[in-house]
Amino acid sequence: MIVAKRKPFEEIKGLIKGYNKVLNVGCGTCVAVCLAGGEKEVAVLNAELDMARKLEESPIEVGALTVERQCDREYLEPLDAIVNDYEAILSMACGAGIQFVAERFPQTPVFPAVDTTFIGVNQGVGWYEERCRSCSSCVLGMTGGICPVTMCAKGLYNGPCGGTNKGNCEISKDQPCAWYLIYERLEKQGRLDSIMAFTPASKWENQVPRTVIQPGYEKSKADATP
């Protein structure tokens, strides 16, 4: 899932300073699962904003609406009817959802209430760890299911570097060396040959905005393009 963390309260308050009627839109998918921007987090933020603005003698009306997914047009429809009742929108979705809302309502200022952080896994309630940088050219087959681009602090394709520190990365004793783990796993699987060969330079396909059109669905984009 996409993992986000809420922005510091002061920053959010600053973003919507001067607006007196703001709609806070939550997202019911990734950011709800990672406890950053679902229905409950919308309620908490709104309560905070309400109290803080009252203490400043400049009360604000904050609406709440959590949609299933902000990155999907059909779920944004319910916003159409109410958006004009508000001066601005706060979105607690990931950066993709925030942009999709902003794109739909170009007249309305849209502000982020979370910092989108990574694609990661759920290690425990409220505890998430990064696992993927969406580089567009997955090498997990070669590296025993451990991503060197994400998990190696230098993103090495031909690791490990000389900084391996008792099995940990040179950046921290709490960060395992990805290439140490890759070596161990491949050795146990008898597959060390898969990292014996030289891996050439990455094509870095993530340097431009990417579009994916799944095979058999070419028509939808063709229809939408004037």
Binding site: A153, N158, C161, G162, G163, I171, A201
Partner: peptide, 24 residues
């Protein structure tokens, strides 16, 4: 060389490039 991680130096907030690695 790969190079020490930028975290150790005088610009710990720098973006580490690592476009290619030492082998490459």
């Amino acid at each position: 060389l790969s190079g020490d991680h930028q975290k150790f130096g005088d610009h710990p907030d720098a973006m580490g490039v690592f476009d290619i690695d030492s082998m490459q």
